[in-house]
Design a protein around this nucleic acid. Structure first.
Ligand SMILES: Cc1cn([C@H]2C[C@H](O)[C@@H](COP(=O)(O)OP(=O)(O)OP(=O)(O)O)O2)c(=O)[nH]c1=O
Ligand SMILES: [Mg+2]
Length: 651
DNA sequence: GGGCGCGGGATAG
DNA sequence: TTCCACTATCCCGCGCCC
């Protein structure tokens, strides 16, 4: 440990952020880099925050060491038995039947910029700005400049460094080109970022070496970009391998257990994906673990100190085991936007920023047709402390106004505060996966198109399905035929009233009112002291006798017009109402509808499959509503035009 | 006790 | 003169509810 010489060379104790071995960093004067970084950082707010975090981790390590010291010989042999058993089980699961290839483009953003501006070739260059750089080319790396380093420090390390601003459209374009090549080798390849992908080449592989060379050549031919590749029996090892001969190189690890053991034994644990700065630090200083092999040597202690989930992971690393299956494609779980600015406590400025962020987030959500019910506000204080505050709503939101409304309330609760960053994230998207759907059920849109199992139909289901409130179509049809509305019930997501109050006791959040009832209005007055739209738990009870009665004939017309409007506004096809009516007669499908309570009172119709099970709670009763035109503004971005074009031809 | 929601943290590109 | 990004995912611990 360098602690003894800390007095002389304080930079050695400053975190190892830029010192971990990285491609292109051989032969760099690490001591000098470390010193410059330290000199530039020392005394800054950022630095102080890092020191706080570091101290916290040191404390954690200290606690672990105490735990280790307390272990008796008996304890140790006990945990050793458990560990051995687990290791044998894991070893038994070893699968050497697959061949995985990991591709990683070299200095990707920088390489793309160089391609578009050849004068940059051979000169040290970084993509990003003075505050942060995304990556640097290999010329710049010789100076110690690297991804995640602030630009102003990089400048000190390399006087002639050229900065190029990021341009994601370019990177996306070139990423697409590389993926075209990947697809030829494995149509089911899966990309983990713009510049990385895993390919299962088991089937196409005669010689791994040749496949890798051929692939890299093809990529270079078709894009002008170089990449590195790693081939191994599982994804964890393939990723390690792709980094070994970077840039523009490859490394093949044969599907042979002895070769794997040899390979893994001397490998520093930091090379493994999932083991970062902190884990490396903890395992080294608490248990003396440096290489993957050490994971097995110290298995008893890993068992004693960590959860079985964590120790399993550590043992897998020691054995060189990794996933060999192809993961199913997952939809995104959250979407966010955040901005950094000069730290300030000027509230007008902060709220203005919040509005900007809400707007970009809303635009991004609309691009992907997302609507979410959990909003998370992220703040970074002037001292770099990160705070997050979340609310889960009863309704799904995606407009700037809605996002800003709730975000403002949360932010108000944090004032006064000096901030340097504000971010907003939406999650818990509206999605059929959120409710136990019968996957055999199809959407109304599907039905109308007659293409129930087409991929576009599935993607449509993913994007535009379940709502917080739904009407069973059969019930709706019953109603249309003159039955009572009394039996129609709405399905709310689980109520989070208490949660909201608990976590943000200064504010009460408005609920989504499905019917305008006197009782709600009355309660609103009673709770006037709280906020504008308070909603008590009592209001979750069904509202009695509040709906007016309109003729069922009229309702039927209205319902059919809704659907007609929906289809029209989405894809511009005007269908005869009688056609829709005829189609609907055959359905055991459902449609969901949603009434915006906001000033615009826009009505949005969502077509959705619905679970067969009865609604969990019946909080409100549906009241008949007046017909309103669908808002095409909200619907236009739903990318189902191509889907409907099929339908157009047929009709 | 399982599930949910929140807040913090680690990791990666 | 300037003084460390942005997007996303997973995991853990905690408190609460059913
Ligand atoms: C590591 C990192 C990468 N990126 C971007 C820029 C990178 O070009 C791109 C791919 O990341 P990396 O593959 O990690 O880095 P790289 O491709 O630039 O260099 P190499 O693989 O040869 O070591 O992701 C960031 O924006 N921020 C980061 O912190
Ligand atoms: Mg790369």
């Amino acid at each position: 440990m360098a602690t003894s010489s800390e007095g002389d060379r304080p930079w050695q104790s400053y975190n190892t952020a830029y010192t971990n071995a990285k491609a292109g960093m051989d032969g760099v004067d690490k001591e000098k880099v470390q010193r410059v970084v330290y000199e530039m950082s020392k005394g800054s707010k950022y630095f102080e925050n890092e020191q706080r975090k570091e101290a916290f981790i040191k404390q954690k390590i200290e606690n672990l060491r105490v735990q280790v010291d307390l272990l008796t010989d008996k304890d140790i042999s006990h945990f050793q038995m458990i560990a051995n058993k687990r290791i044998i089980e894991l070893e038994a699961s070893r699968d050497l039947s697959k061949i995985w290839l990991h591709v990683d483009m070299d200095a990707f953003y920088a390489a793309v910029e160089t391609l578009e501006n050849p004068s940059l070739r051979g000169r040290p260059m970084a993509v990003g700005g003075l505050s942060m750089i995304s990556t640097a080319n290999y010329e710049a790396r010789k100076f110690g400049v690297r991804a995640g380093m602030p630009g102003f420090i990089a400048c000190k390390l390399c006087q002639d460094l050229i900065f190029v601003p990021t341009n994601f459209e370019k990177y996306t374009f070139y990423s697409e080109l590389t993926r075209k090549v990947f697809r030829r080798y494995d149509p089911d390849f899966f990309a983990t970022s713009l510049d990385e992908a895993y390919l299962n080449i088991t089937e196409v592989c005669i010689s791994s070496d040749e496949v890798a060379s051929e692939l890299r050549n093809a990529i270079f031919e078709e894009t002008g970009l170089t990449c590195s590749a790693g081939v191994a029996p599982n994804r964890m090892l393939a990723k390690v391998c792709s980094d070994l001969n970077k840039p523009n190189g490859q490394f093949i690890l044969p599907n042979d257990k002895d070769a794997i053991i040899t390979f893994i034994s001397s490998l520093p644990i930091r090379k493994i994906g999932g083991i970062g700065k902190v884990t490396e630090h903890i395992l080294r200083d608490a248990l003396g673990i440096n290489t993957c092999e050490d994971m097995l040597q110290k298995s008893a202690f890993l068992c004693a100190l960590f959860s079985s989930c964590s120790s399993d992971f550590f043992f897998s690393v020691g054995l060189g085991l990794g996933r060999t299956d192809t993961p199913e494609r997952k939809m995104r779980k959250s979407i966010s936007s955040e901005r950094t600015f000069r730290a300030t406590k000027d509230e007008a400025f902060l709220f203005h920023k919040l509005g900007d962020i809400a707007e970009t987030l809303s635009i991004d959500m609309q691009k992907e047709c997302l609507s979410g019910r959990t909003l998370t506000l992220k703040l970074k204080t002037a001292s770099f402390e990160i705070r997050t505050r979340a609310v889960s709503l009863q309704t799904f939101i995606h407009t700037k106004e809605d996002i800003l409304k709730y975000a403002s309330r949360i932010l108000k609760a944090e004032l006064p505060i000096s901030l340097r960053l504000i971010g907003l994230r939406m999650s818990q998207f509206r999605d059929d996966k959120n409710s136990n759907l019968d996957p055999m059920q199809k959407t109304i849109v599907c039905f109308l198109s007659g293409e129930c199992d087409s991929p576009s139909a599935r993607s449509l289901q993913k994007q535009d399905c379940v709502n917080s409130d739904k009407l069973e179509i059969q019930e709706c049809l019953d109603f249309m035929e003159g039955n009572s509305m009394q039996d129609l019930e709405l399905d709310f997501p689980a109520s989070d009233d208490h949660t909201i109050e608990r976590h943000c006791d200064k504010f009460c959040f408005s609920e989504y009112h499905h019917s305008v009832s006197n009782s709600v209005a009355e309660r609103r007055e009673l709770n006037d002291s709280c906020v504008d739209e308070f909603r008590s738990n009592e209001s979750l009870q069904p509202n009695e006798g509040t709906h007016s009665v309109e003729s069922s004939k009229h309702m039927k017309e209205v319902s059919l017009r809704w659907i007609d409007d929906y289809i029209c506004s989405v894809c511009g096809i005007e269908l005869p109402v009688s056609f829709i009516e005829e189609r609907l007669e055959h359905l055991d499908y459902h449609f969901a509808q949603r009434l915006e309570e906001e000033e615009s009172s826009q009505r949005r119709i969502h077509l959705a499959p619905v679970e067969r099970c009865s609604p969990k709670a019946s909080h409100a009763r549906q009241a008949p509503r007046k017909k309103q035109k669908c808002s095409s503004k909200e619907l236009n971005h739903i990318p189902i035009e191509s889907f409907f074009s099929k339908f157009k031809k047929n009709s």
